[in-house]
Write a protein that binds this DNA or RNA. Structure first.
Lengths: 340, 340
DNA sequence: TTAAAAAGCTAAATCGTTTAACTTTTTTGA
DNA sequence: TCAAAAAAGTTAAACGATTTAGCTTTTTAA
């Protein structure tokens, strides 16, 4: 009761294996009559088509696309922004009969998949920096999102401009400002930057956002000392709560806090409210991303809205198209009640 | 500048291909000295190890596990329960150096992956019923979660018992009860059941839950007419809102509503509150799943808590172990403020 | 000292296709 | 009617590994 192979079928029908293969893959290589005859015979004897594993080896194509997420899947799958992105990617892949392999950005190496996947979509700078290197070395197509890899097409919004604009909208000269950032330094816990060297991921969006903030701050004549800048190791509630408490209990308390994600901003907001702080009266807050929840709070969040679904779709389309053209997506400033 | 193959390396080092292969895969087949010599030489000339595509064909093993989700990935990835489940699965796969391929349960067929994946984890009854059939026909291992496939190991909680208990806790004789269920009938939109035949997925958890409710209702001497049972096609906010409105505007309005998921229950709750209905005074609500958000509302939800992460981990472990033993996980009744 | 056992390695078959190159048959056009 | 072109099939060589059986050589045991 072994599984049938192309060879078995060929013998059975008295034609060559090439013809069977062509019947499935290249209809123009044989007469229509013969083709339907073969396909029907296959159905009758229970041959469901060429073995995919063999096809992968022979064709060098698997229809599998690896989505390299910045962190462990563990976390990424539950992050609203990331999972919405995955949603966009999966939609386009589905339409094109491709499959989605989830790959953790903190993995040791891509060696165990690079031989068979058709390409990579890389969402955010991989936590394991060696992966970026490997991704760039190998020859399969790569599309990056929210960070850059030299010579590879990237999908981005203009993070610097967006950050500048949201900060500018929130700031007045004389404000005391703090920044809650993401992975700015290489620390496993939430902490102030102080003298720590910034992570050397110049291409990452968090640096772009920091640049944007800085520009707006400069225009308002405000300086932010590096101990008023926090770096969270991951964009999740636990670190966000921790950072929120630290910053809100710091003296003197800032009256404007710029957050690099809505997750952070929302926890900060909740924390502030529970401490009886008046938002935006005593404290203005800005977020980033525009997740759904951000518009459901009272006061609702000021943030930069970007469509993660669209990002995902564009990334997948770009990968499948094979073009090497980067793309800047639009965003929308949402000036909410947290900046008054 | 072609990629190196095992053959190239063998020629280069003057040994047979078998020896190189053994150096990578079966250290006991050659002397330790030769092995390190070979591995170092490989590193030097830039051979990164056996080609995975070829290995997949030859070994019949890919280290890829397909996770068949009930619906389209599009939706499943953003569902809190499903994504938490994925989290659990991915954690265990990661530990075992396996990879995760996401597969949509509304796909036409599994033919395009069955040849190369090592096994399937099937989360919920696939929307395309033919998939269940195909999954059962093929010979690779399958683990089912939240539904059953004859002869295949399953991971479940005792849905009937849990539903019975939560319903029993909410009900008093004389109550007017409605049920908001999931995929009980085959309709693309939210609707009452009326005389529609129940979907013939006897194995599905929604039927188990209905049975549990029924038992509790019987004990309380209450009958629920089939037009007080709704069926939502998918567990999402849009359908939930729709169902919530329908049921709350129905006359006479029920004073107990049993919901088969927290998503549904939460929308119902919000809808009720915004209509000025007193919960639990005028209306009691129960959910199912125990998602995080359910404990953050005021009043907070009565529900059945089950750990999706654990489900995912157990499912993956079961698949990898190769055992054929089903498993019943524990759950916890959380009697919240929505039943007073 | 020698037979038996173990270790180390090689040659060849295999996994199940695809596809370039070739042969044979049919069609076309002048 | 016939050469040239097009169509329909076939052959056989890849694709890049793994693995079994067998052959040397070395080690062990008596």
């Amino acid at each position: 009761m072994k599984k049938l192979t192309l060879k078995d079928v060929a013998k059975e029908l008295g034609v060559s294996t090439a013809t069977i293969s062509n019947a499935f893959n290249r209809p123009d290589q044989l007469s229509a009559a013969k083709r339907t005859e073969i396909l029907e015979a296959c159905k009758k004897i229970g041959y469901t088509g060429p073995n995919r594993a063999a096809q992968i080896l022979r064709k060098g194509q698997s229809n599998i696309v690896a989505l390299v997420l910045a962190d462990s899947l563990d976390y990424m799958v539950t992050d609203p922004v990331a999972s919405t992105f995955i949603q966009g990617v999966s939609r386009v892949l589905r339409e094109n009969q491709k499959h989605l392999l989830l790959y953790a950005g903190d993995s040791e190496s891509i060696a165990d998949v690079v031989d068979f996947v058709d390409g990579f979509i890389c969402y955010g700078a991989p936590r394991n920096a060696a992966l970026s290197e490997q991704l760039n070395q190998q020859s399969k197509p790569v599309v990056t999102v929210d960070f850059n890899l030299e010579g590879r097409p990237a999908i981005n919004i203009d993070n610097e401009k967006a950050s500048y604009e949201i900060a500018k909208a929130a700031l007045k000269p004389g404000d005391h400002v703090a920044i809650l950032g993401l992975r700015l330094i290489d620390s496993p816990s939430t902490c102030r930057i102080y003298d720590n060297p910034l992570l050397n991921v110049e291409s990452s969006i968090t640096h772009r956002r920091l640049d944007g903030y800085s520009e707006a701050l400069k225009e308002a004549g405000i300086t932010v000392d590096s101990d008023w800048i926090w770096s969270l190791p991951e964009n999740n509630v636990v670190y966000a709560v921790q950072a929120a408490k630290e910053v809100l209990y710091s003296q003197p308390r800032p009256n404007v806090i710029l957050c690099m994600s809505d997750i952070i901003a929302l926890e900060l907001l909740q924390c502030a409210l529970s401490m009886g702080i008046d938002v935006p009266g005593e404290l203005k807050i800005t977020g980033f991303d525009g997740i759904e929840e951000a518009s459901r709070t009272r006061p609702y969040l000021s943030t930069v809205c970007q469509s993660s679904v669209e990002k995902g779709m564009q990334a997948a389309n770009l990968l499948l198209s094979g073009e090497n053209q980067s793309m800047s997506l639009s965003y929308e400033l949402k000036l909410g009640e947290t900046i008054g």
